[in-house]
């Protein structure tokens, strides 16, 4: 296992190909829930958990179910079903055993089912760590790590954005640009800044 590979995955997933700012996955939730830091933080924790778990589950399904039975064309449909089921399941479990936590980020969980970031990382993993129907060495570890990093990238963008937007609450932004347009402008400048990491080599 190459430690440099981990760093490359980390820098790529968090900065260069940031799931929101560069791949535009989970953009809807990013713009909608980033008005305040606390819910933004809760949402990103939930997303991070789900991206990690769904990376693990979808890798197992792809490796031990879809490839052996030659059904990789069912990737999209099986992944989304598994993710939806998993999210439902987690929601039920959390509601049962940790009501406080459920109140903290329970309402965001159902939204995650249709959060493109989750399906996106599953599809990316199966594109990146499977070569011609075979898993690359340590593909499972890389996939899991990429799931965590994509979640971390989501959290970074969410936290920065929500803090900025909280501060802008007191500013007299030009009226046509209020809310969504300015949100996109901030995201654009953040994306420009993260371009500084382009071509990262360790």
């Amino acid at each position: 296992m190459d430690p440099g590979q981990f760093l490359a995955i980390f820098i790529s997933a968090v900065f260069i190909n940031n799931v929101i700012l560069s791949r535009f996955l989970g953009l809807c939730s990013f713009i909608a829930i980033s008005k305040q830091t606390k819910p933004a933080f809760a949402m990103s924790l939930a997303v991070m958990f789900v991206t990690t778990m769904s990376s693990i589950i979808t890798w197992l399904i792809y490796r031990f179910l879809l490839i052996p039975f030659n059904m990789t064309y069912l990737r999209t449909i099986s992944f989304i079903l598994v993710i939806a089921t998993f999210v439902q399941f987690v929601e039920m479990v959390i509601r049962k055993i940790a009501p406080a936590m459920y109140r903290f980020f329970g309402i965001y969980l159902p939204l995650i089912t249709v959060n493109c970031a989750v399906l996106g990382v599953a599809v990316l993993n199966s594109d990146m760590f499977f070569v011609q129907g075979k898993t690359v060495p340590y593909g499972f570890v890389y996939s899991t790590f990429q799931g965590i990093c994509v979640g971390a990238g989501y959290m970074l963008a969410m936290l920065l954005m929500s803090a900025i937007r909280e501060r802008l609450e007191t500013c007299n932004v030009p009226k046509p640009l209020k809310d969504f347009p300015l949100g996109f402008i901030i995201a654009s400048i953040m994306s420009l800044a993260f371009m500084g990491f382009n071509g990262f080599r360790f």
């Binding site: 920065l160 993260f194 500084g196 990491f197 382009n198 990262f200 080599r201």
Partner: peptide, 22 residues
Amino acid sequence: LWGGYPEGVSYAILMMNAATPL
């Protein structure tokens, strides 16, 4: 040291600008 661009001052300041409210 490791990025693709030779100079990083302007990007570093921009990134920290984004982090300032936090």
